[in-house]
Design a binder for these strands. Structure first.
Length: 595
RNA sequence: GGUUCCUUAGCUCAACUGGAUAGAGCAACUCCCUUCUAAGGAGUAGGUUUCAGGUUCGAGUCCUGAAGGAAUCACCA
């Protein structure tokens, strides 16, 4: 790669001129700004002490040395301490030839690194909504990105399938379900169970109001509402393995899973392994014991177990109740060990909303204090909530943007838009439906992934997700446009193998810019994995598509008379399409060949 | 109240981890389809990067403080 070569050349130059060895990883280039001539810029300000010269002098001396000794450097110019390097254009032709022969991502070596990514982790009471989509897309995408960077990745889903809240919907169903199944009602199983969860809340509120009217204090009423007590009772029975209750639980969860499966399939998200809290909620108690022995935890008079994190600017945190039952963090400690036994990973990523920042900080700290070898590789991929104009989404209140509905709406929009443009009249029904879905999901995924995860985002249902401009559809459109060109090149028998253009020595600036962008792809790929940031990929794709669109508008391909140039532009188109397709896959966005 | 996070153009977001004159899309306005897909391209306008200090050759980015917003501080998960 060019940048690596340039790094070495700078290192040599420093050695020869200043008798100083710069470590390679410290040699950094940035893109030359458009208003100056050059491709890459080396900043010399930091090296004053080494060279003993002013930055602009250092830059000039370096530039002269490089021009003299390095074949690919054609020229240079110095602006203050910025050394702009102008490369021989044959370098870019050669770069494209290499790209053409072997895409850059095929050069990425397999790492000896296992990564587990936990995401989605739904609650079986709550049908998936827009916020969950952000989670699912992030988790899926981060997994794909790490895998593309050579890691072995395991995608897992930890399903929250037990607890009082589950009993609530079960109870509401017992009372008002009349034994109906989702098939009877003609709705998805997860939706039906979700409805009963909402139903419970209505019943609960009614009871609370009644109590308050009868003179009970609000807070007490909320604790003593009979229906709540009954739900708690039900949880006890469930824990004791009561047949009637567990049968109902299994039946209702079965419905939910069917619904979830359908949604996962529809949005193109997959998992390698499922964990269920009903299997893991008892884990972790033995580790509490271990922690007591190690002196990491301490016991209070009432028998409850705590950890003191005051030294870390955190508080004391309960890890086991006085009655010996576990809390949330107990089972998370246990599950962490379980996961490591199943898949001894170096990195473990938890894709969970930022309302649990504190929880994960504590969890990772505890595991570190317990001396778990894997604790250093743990990472909470924390993302901001998706908010509506009137505030947060609440499943309990029913104020959510439902995932299935949103996807369906967008498919409808894609269909309308495609109808207006009218380029796929010869598509079969099936092909057309595939395309609509591809476009709808592309728009949705891009919309959610292009934003840095930790930022909260606002979704206004009134103005729909873009099919224009900086959007997923723009990327897909660019890809489809290129495919048209490749089809024509193929039917006209125009070669774009590297020997058809390798002799070229001059390039248009748009061509050069595009080649540079293509060859920089691994940098973004690496950055995305390093920072768990699909947004890096998304933004790169946009830049790439934009750069190509510019070239497409400026330069004619089939109207070009010089055969070598024609071939080069086709090769450039091909490389762009392949890169878009590869990067799109990392975001879960499919690229159509026609649209 | 403590802690953590956020604040960039009217709106939604970028900015290669401290680099040069802060960039895109949407919305507004001008142009460009008898030439490879106009779901596109070129342009105009829009900024004291919330504010006040500091660090240095250089700060949207780092440090301190302030303002506004969010989350969390449960023997819920």
């Amino acid at each position: 790669m060019i940048l690596q070569q340039l790094q070495k050349e700078i290192q040599n130059a420093f050695q020869a001129l200043f008798n100083h060895t710069l470590p390679l990883e410290k040699i950094d280039f940035q893109q030359t700004r458009k208003e100056f001539e050059g491709s890459y810029t080396f900043v010399t300000f930091p090296y004053g002490k080494i060279t003993g010269k002013r930055p602009d002098e250092t830059a000039t001396i370096l530039g002269e040395f490089l021009k003299e000794n390095v074949a690919i450097i054609k020229n240079f110019n110095v602006v203050k301490g910025f050394l702009n390097l102008v490369l021989e254009q044959s370098v870019w032709v050669k770069t494209l030839a290499n790209l053409n022969n072997k895409p850059v991502w095929q050069n990425i070596k397999k790492k000896d690194e296992k990564v587990m990514v936990e995401y989605s982790s739904p609650n079986t009471n709550k049908p998936l909504h827009l916020g969950h989509l952000r989670n699912n897309f992030l988790g899926y995408s981060v997994s794909e990105i790490m895998a593309a960077n050579g890691s072995e990745v395991m995608k897992v889903n930890l399903v929250n399938d037990r607890g009082v809240h589950i009993c609530k919907s079960m109870l509401a169903y017992q009372r008002h379900g009349n034994g109906k199944t989702p098939q009877d009602l003609g709705i998805k199983g997860d939706k039906m169970v979700g409805d009963f969860y909402v139903k419970f809340n209505d019943l609960f509120k009614a009871e609370v109001n009644q109590l308050v009217e009868a003179g009970t204090e609000q807070k007490r009423a909320e604790k003593e509402a009979p229906i709540l007590k009954e739900a708690q009772q039900m949880l006890l029975k469930w824990e004791q393995g009561d047949k009637e209750i567990t049968d109902l639980w299994k039946k209702m969860n079965g419905w939910v899973y069917e619904g979830f499966d359908e949604t996962y399939k529809s949005i193109g998200v997959k998992f390698d392994k499922f964990y269920y809290e009903s299997n893991t909620y008892l884990l972790g108690k033995d580790i509490i014991e271990e922690g007591l022995e190690k002196g990491v935890f301490f016991k209070k008079e009432d028998g409850s177990v705590w950890i003191d994190l005051k030294d870390e600017k955190l508080d004391e945190k309960l890890v086991l109740r006085a009655d010996g039952t576990s809390v949330y963090i107990t089972q998370d400690i246990g599950t962490a060990d379980l996961k490591y036994r199943d898949f001894p990973m170096q990195k473990s990523v938890y894709v969970v909303g930022n309302e649990q920042d504190y929880h994960f900080k504590v969890l990772f700290l505890i595991l570190k204090k317990l001396g778990r070898s894997y604790s250093d590789g743990m990472h909470h991929l924390s993302y901001g909530m998706v908010e509506l104009p009137d505030g947060k989404m609440k499943s309990r209140e029913g104020t959510v943007v439902d995932a299935d509905e949103l996807v369906n709406d967008m498919i409808k929009m894609a269909k309308e838009r495609t109808g207006e443009v009218g380029k796929i009249d010869d598509f079969s029904e099936q092909e057309a439906e595939n395309l609509y879905r591809m476009l709808a999901l592309g728009a949705l995924k891009y919309y959610l992934l292009r934003v840095e995860p930790k930022k909260k985002m606002l979704f206004n249902p009134a103005d729909s997700i873009d099919f224009q401009g900086n959007s997923g559809v723009y990327l897909q459109y660019t890809h489809a446009k290129i495919c048209a060109i490749l089809r024509k090149a193929n039917s006209d028998n125009i070669s774009h193998k590297s020997d058809s253009f390798e002799s070229l020595t001059a390039l248009e600036s748009t061509e050069e810019d595009l080649i540079r962008l293509l060859s920089d792809y691994p940098i973004y790929l690496n950055e995305a994995a390093q920072n768990y940031a699909p947004s890096s990929i998304a933004n790169y794709m946009y830049d790439l598509a934009k750069q190509y669109s510019k070239l497409y508008a400026e330069l004619s391909i089939f109207g070009e008379e010089n055969e070598s140039k024609k071939s080069l532009r086709i090769a450039l188109s091909d490389a762009t399409a392949k890169t878009l397709k590869h990067a799109g896959k990392l975001l879960g966005i499919e690229m159509p060949e026609r649209m």
